[in-house]
Design a protein around this nucleic acid. Sequence first.
DNA 1: TTGGGTGCAAACTATTTGCATTCGA
DNA 2: TCGAATGCAAATAGTTTGCACCCAA
Lengths: 141, 141
Amino acid sequence: MNSLDQFPKSRADVVSMLRDSGITPTHQRIKIGEVLFSCKQHLSAEQVLVAVNQEDEEVSKATVYNTLGVFAQHGLISEVIVDPSKVFYDSNLSKHHHLYYSDTGELEDLTDESVEISKLPELPNDLQIEDVDVIIRVHRN
Amino acid sequence: MNSLDQFPKSRADVVSMLRDSGITPTHQRIKIGEVLFSCKQHLSAEQVLVAVNQEDEEVSKATVYNTLGVFAQHGLISEVIVDPSKVFYDSNLSKHHHLYYSDTGELEDLTDESVEISKLPELPNDLQIEDVDVIIRVHRN
DNA sequence: TTGGGTGCAAACTATTTGCATTCGA
DNA sequence: TCGAATGCAAATAGTTTGCACCCAA
């Protein structure tokens, strides 16, 4: 396991990640990367915007959306679609599933091993499976 | 199996369903119910709006959203959250999963038997599981 | 009759887009 | 330098809300 598989990442690691993915490492993208890749987490675009501009006003809303889109396209983060009102961006790159608290909107990771799918349907072979998402929706009593 | 478990449903069946759920069967709700419960399908709010007003302008957009919310709360339909841009309402009440074509936005049912989950994580017992969603995201070659 | 249901328009929120400006390589 | 990236503001889309009116029971 090399340093790029670990959290948290230094600024230099973020720059490497971006370069490795063919993404030009600009100030804004690096800043956003530092926020996202500091630990495994789920953030909405709005949360990223706030976190990134904590100290100074550095990144615009449009750029946050843009950048999240670029990162997702390159597989650096994944979109988690569980809440009808917004998309979460997940910096946990390992295979895993989600536990969603529908009352509070919280999202938690479930390790890949904690869920086992023993059977999937046969699909026409012109179909590529991108992902098999398992979402357990729960609420507190 | 009684008639209410089957598709398509007559106007009278829709009225019964609504009454059984404690929902006042108004003109608009019945109309929306007739559209939704005519067969197993996935419709967005927009599609319901169009279908309902096919012949005459009968139901407003706000009422469609309202009514879909009421139906979902009472378990007559379920919300399917797979597309970041909109919610689908599913009139298929039997347990099942979904196949989502991320390129076209199409949504297909997978029968419950076609997917088998052999292991779920242990959850604190103050948590109620509402649902376990499996979504297979695919795209064509 | 009368309180819940509806229609409408306006408000809101998340996200996208167009275009002039700026900046990384 | 120079094309790619950014910022901004305005546009868009889906959804929600407030309120006066209406109708099912």
